[in-house]
């Protein structure tokens, strides 16, 4: 937005930016107004602080903002830069992921109260829900990377897909296995061909398909393009998994957590807190394994270049 054009029209230069941000913040306030008071306060305070700081920064230093965005895009899109930055971040991500997962799991297994109907079997939730959510989130990330790889042919996006797929496959398997074991004492069966369970199994096969496709085609660029296409198309299955419990009659319960839901989360804070820790821990674990695999893939693809030879020597 050029400030000249706007001021010539007789409006203050930042009129549109201010109204847009205020509108977004108002929308956010309206969405989360029905959430529990603590969550609402945290979301609102965080949202407004971030919004105001971002807006103030963008007004004061527009060039700096633009240049930073551009620099990030180039650095993350360039394999040597990505390799270096990922190497700097990895130790911290490992520490955060370990702490969150260990605290969350110990809290969930030993300290959270039991469920009034399911007793202690519900403690599998601290494994099942983070794994399922990470498996779905990873596929969406793969779909976004696939789109970038198809449209801009960015090499890093193809590498990202290759790095994400094994993590997603493992998480989908963990979700299915933990769900089956939880199902036996709760529903009386390990498995039924239910919409939620079947679509989750398909998600696992989609991940295996992406991995198989990458291994079947010899040329890495061609393999990357084929895998990108499958990643983008497969995102439709993520939507099906997410809404399967609403669209079809299902033995699987609906979601008990909600960020903006009308009644907030249907799960008590004493059970929700460790669950959130486990979920964030799993997301950090996602970052860790994806960065490790991406670094490996970068080294192999660039093995003829001088910087890789210096790096491994």
């Amino acid at each position: 937005m050029s400030s000249d054009a706007v001021s010539r029209a007789g409006l203050p230069a930042h009129f549109f930016a201010v109204s847009l941000s205020a509108g977004l913040l108002a929308l956010m306030t309206w969405f989360i107004w029905s959430a529990p008071p603590v969550a609402r306060t945290v979301w609102l305070a965080g949202g407004w602080t971030f919004g105001v700081l971002f807006y103030y920064g963008a007004l004061r230093y527009p060039h700096w903002y633009w240049q930073t965005l551009e620099r990030w895009y180039h650095q993350l899109g360039s394999p040597p830069h990505f390799y270096r930055i990922a190497g700097l971040w990895l130790p911290w991500l490992v520490i955060i992921a370990t702490v969150l997962c260990v605290v969350g799991v110990v809290w969930g297994l030993a300290f959270a109260p039991p469920h009034h109907e399911q007793g202690n079997s519900y403690r599998i939730i601290y494994l099942h829900v983070p794994a399922s959510s990470a498996a779905l989130m990873a596929y969406v990330a793969m779909g976004v990377a696939g789109l970038v790889a198809l449209v801009w042919r960015l090499k890093m996006a193809e590498i990202a897909i290759k790095a994400i797929a094994p993590f997603g496959a493992i998480m989908a398997a963990v979700s299915l296995i933990s769900g089956a074991i939880w199902g036996r004492p709760t529903w009386g069966t390990y498995w039924i061909w239910d919409a939620r369970l079947t679509s989750m199994l398909i998600l696992l096969f989609m991940y295996l398909g992406v991995i198989a496709l990458q291994n079947a085609i010899r040329d890495p660029r061609q393999a990357g393009q084929a895998a990108s296409l499958l990643s983008v198309v497969g995102v439709i299955n993520v939507v099906i998994v997410r809404y399967s419990v609403d669209w079809w009659q299902s033995l699987h319960q609906g979601s008990s957590m909600s960020m903006f839901g009308t009644a907030g989360s249907a799960i008590h804070p004493s059970m929700l807190a460790p669950l959130l820790l486990c979920m964030f821990g799993t997301y950090f674990l996602f970052a860790v394994t994806v960065l490790v695999r991406a670094r490996t893939e970068i080294l192999w693809r660039e093995r003829k270049s001088a910087w890789v030879r210096e790096e491994v020597a």
Binding site: S121, I170, V288
Partner: peptide
């Protein structure tokens, strides 16, 4: 875990092993 020990601990055993395998495999 009341009566649910076998279910909970087998689920955690198998799945934590899988997740650890994922990390070891990548490294």
């Amino acid at each position: 875990m009341g009566v649910h020990g076998p279910w909970v601990w087998s689920a955690y055993g198998i799945c934590v092993a899988l997740i650890a395998l994922n990390v070891v495999w990548a490294v």
